[in-house]
Each structure stands twice: as structure tokens, then as C-alpha cells.
Design a protein around this nucleic acid. Structure first.
Lengths: 248, 248
DNA sequence: CGCCCATTTGATGGTGCTCAAAATTTGTGG
DNA sequence: CCACAAATTTTGAGCACCATCAAATGGGCG
């Protein structure tokens, strides 16, 4: 697995790796300059909690690098992941001061934070930000709904296959590659995190991964490095539709 | 159950029952006037499909009255409800021409439709609309995430109790009442729709409702009319937290 | 090497699904 | 108004899938 480089703690927006995908994606250079004035960077180590549920949150932020999770829990400890935050994803809710989610760094994470009040004021003046945020929120809502179908109706095997196929495709899109028959990638999640994502126990996750390996749907090098020899096969195991036309 | 009155097929925005909650909630009177120019009403009978998944959708719309559902299905027919649309809720995605959901009228439904292209253009010029839509979308995302916790981690009994408590509270808020110890309401969903909402089979829904009745958590008059003698009891059966401070 | 943690594997049981039939409600036409 | 049909809901019996509890294996790091 690649080590996580920590970028410099101050970064010009123009050089930002998430410049074209984050909440600032549509901003003009004068708008970026204004954002520079209210932004600051914070970094978190793997495993650290970024925000506790119900805590006052005086900033909103973009994930610059690393992976974080949004989780909700019941009183008796059962927990469900409700969001997976990747570089360029947005955290926090303008207009509200707290949220019922824990935000946790899964890997080392660098966040670009904006002080809440100035950001909210700027958003009212700057349609480019509000427009982009709306688009991103609608995308997240679509993703949440596909996730609901997975949680409510898929079998354990289908859930695992779905997760693998999501990670594989996302990996391709981040590297700006086209999805291919054969794909190789690293799982960014522990078995427990996968279980919380899928609404399963970690034992079931482990068993189903072993089963997919036995059946030749995937190959494993170590615990985290996955090879998918035939993406069509994996996607049909995922259940949603035999071929979403993802492959060329 | 109350019969469903069909409002007149043309309605001044100023007299609209959802005026203060829908996507137009923040509009000034001149903005409303512009909306009047691109809006038209359509009504649907209970059971009718409003939009088929993947179909071209040349409008966006607000639910004026009645209840509709958003559902996703797998090829083999398994279906999961991913949204419950109540009066003032918004349908359709600005910027995209189709969505992967079926939208179905559960009761008779009246929709206030806007032609897509004019609406999108107006949204770019009118921050009040974009701002309100963002707020509504963020609310929906929060609701979707609570729903994910329910689907992934709650037992069948907790799922039913959660649904009943959601419907009870929503009923109170629509009637502008405060939630009380004892509450009485109608279920707007069939057993099958409840099953699709909760990720269960209709048999399990029926059994768990019977069990809650046996245990005195609810009383039934007919199949749809529900009395909750003790909301605290119901909410603790729902599992999330013993008392969200909902009651006075 | 030995400890710690993540993961795998095993044995067993319970929750909720499947298949099936009965009961109840709703709608229809004579 | 009643008889009959259709649809919805309830109830029952049996089983599969996944959770639970428990122990073994493996990998990383001091």
C-alpha cells in the first residue's frame, strides 16, 4: 500500500488537487481569492475522530486527501456507515450547527476547512458555490438511495460484490482510466468498516470474500490488494443489472 | 379514511397550500409570477405510475397533495422504496434528464409541474429557488441516512416501530399539533408498501404489527387506523434513542 | 521471538424468508 | 341488499441465511 504523503499545510487554491471537483469547482479566480481568506488546513491521523455526533461544528470542509467515514450508531452500539468521504467530498451542513454523525478518518486525512459563518455569508453572495454544492448534494442523495437498495434487498454475497465493484470503478475514475475487464485495486477499508458499510457482521464479510475468491470472481494478494479478472462477472454477482454499459 | 379532494386545476401560487414549504418557499411575489408562467398541474390516480425509471423526464415538480413513492428495483423484481414524497416534496433533478427511480402515486396525487428547461434557466437567475432546493435536498439526505441506519441495523420489530413513530410525528407536524403521549393516525401505506419501505417481506410486516398489538404498544381499528397509547413506549421500541425530547 | 491486532474459520442458533392456506376486507353485478 | 369474486391481510410450518460465540491463523512491529 502506498504511504500517505502529507501535503504542505498551506496550499494555493490554484494548485489544489481537488480544485476541479470540490465545492469550489465553479469558482472564478476572484472567488477563489476570497475563499483563501477564510480557509485553513487541518490534518487527522488514521483512526482519529474528526467530528463527534451532536457536537457543535464551527466549520465546513472539503476532504483534500485520504478517506473518512460518516457513521450513525444506536445506543447499544450497533453502527451503520452512512457516508464514505473521498477527496473532494464536502463535510458539514450550512445552516445547521451540528449533525447526528460521527466523522472518522480511516486513513490519514487532510481537510480544507472554512469557518462556518463566513462561508455561509459567502455562499449567499456567490451562486457558483451554492450551485456546485447543490449538484454535489444531489449526487450524494442518489448514492444514498442506491445504498438503500443494497441494504434493504441484497444478499450478503451481492453486497460484497457491489462494494468491490464500486471501489473498482471509483479507482478507475480517480486515475482517469476507463474501466476494463481486468482491474486491480486496494481496499481502503478494514473488514469491520466494510461490515458497517454493508449492514453485515465482519465475520460474514470475511466469509463472503473467501467465497468469491474460491469461486474465482476475485483474487487476493494479501488482505487488501484485490484483482478482478472479469468485471462483468463481478457486476453480475452484484445483482443490480447485468451490464450497466460501464465497460468499453 | 378521508376522501381525496381534487383541487382546481389552476391555482394562484399565493393561494397554494404548500406555498411556504415547497421549492418556491423563499420566492418574492415577482418571482412567483414568473413561476406561474412555466407551471402546470397534473393529477394522478392512486396506483398510477408518475415517472418510469430511466424515462426521459421533461419536467420537475412539487407534490401539492397526496402521497407518492420513489422505488428502485433489481432485475429479479426485488424492490426497495428509496423515498416517500409528501405534499411540498420535490421530484426531479435539475441538470439531469432521467433518474433511476419509479415514481408512483400511492393515493390520488396532484403535482405542480415546471417545464424543465425554463425552470433550470430560472434557477440560475434566482438564488431564492436554488437556496431552497439545496436546503430541501440536505434534509432529504439526512432522512436517507437515518433510513440507512434502519435498513442496515434494526430488527424487524424496531423497523415497524420506527415507521409508526415517523408517521405519527409527521402527522402531528402537518396538523401543527404538538406530539403527545397518545396519538391517533391513519397509515398511508399498504403492508406491501411498508415492506418495501423497510426492507422486509409483507408477511413479516404483518406479524410484527400483530406482535406490537398483542404487546399493547399499539391498538388497531381496522387495518389502517392506529392508536398509540404511549409514544414513549413506541419510541423506545424503535431503538434509536430512548427519548429524542420530542414530547413535551 | 513474542505480542497485538486483523482476519479467517468453525459450530450453533435465531430471525426473517419462503411457500401455503385461511381469514378478512373491498369491489361488482344481479 | 346480498352473493360472489378479487384483493389484501393474517396465520402457519419449515428452512436458509446470517448473527453469535469461540477459537485458530496470520501479519506487522517492537
Amino acid at each position: 500500500m502506498t504511504l500517505h504523503e502529507v501535503p504542505p499545510l498551506s496550499l494555493r487554491c490554484g494548485d489544489c488537487p481537488i480544485r476541479h471537483r470540490a465545492v469550489c469547482a465553479r469558482c472564478e479566480s476572484d472567488e477563489l481569492q476570497e475563499l483563501e481568506g477564510i480557509k485553513y488546513y487541518r490534518s487527522f491521523e488514521a483512526g482519529q475522530t474528526i467530528v463527534w455526533a451532536e457536537d457543535q461544528m464551527d466549520f465546513v470542509a472539503s476532504v483534500v486527501s485520504g478517506i473518512a467515514t460518516l457513521t450513525q450508531t444506536l445506543e447499544d452500539g450497533r453502527t451503520q456507515m452512512v457516508g464514505l468521504l473521498l477527496p473532494s467530498d464536502f463535510v458539514g451542513r450550512p445552516g445547521l450547527s451540528s449533525a447526528p454523525y460521527n466523522v472518522t478518518a480511516t486513513t490519514d486525512v487532510l481537510m480544507c476547512c472554512f469557518r462556518k459563518t463566513p462561508f455561509e455569508e459567502m455562499m449567499l453572495r456567490t451562486p457558483h458555490i451554492a450551485q456546485r454544492l447543490l449538484q454535489m448534494t444531489l449526487d450524494e442523495l442518489d448514492a444514498a438511495r442506491e445504498w438503500m437498495l443494497l441494504l434493504g434487498r441484497k444478499t450478503a454475497r451481492e453486497k460484497i460484490a457491489s462494494l468491490l465493484s464500486i471501489v473498482a470503478r471509483r479507482n478507475a475514475s480517480i486515475r482517469l482510466e476507463v474501466a476494463e475487464e481486468r482491474m486491480v485495486f486496494d481496499l481502503p477499508l478494514t473488514r469491520e468498516a466494510m461490515a458497517d458499510y454493508l449492514g453485515l457482521t465482519l465475520e460474514t464479510v470475511s466469509r463472503q470474500i473467501s467465497a468469491l475468491k474460491r469461486d474465482g470472481v476475485i483474487e487476493l494478494q494479501g488482505k487488501r490488494h484485490v484483482t478482478v479478472p472479469d468485471m462483468h462477472r463481478l457486476m453480475s454477482e452484484a445483482g443490480d443489472d447485468s451490464d450497466g454499459g460501464i465497460l468499453g
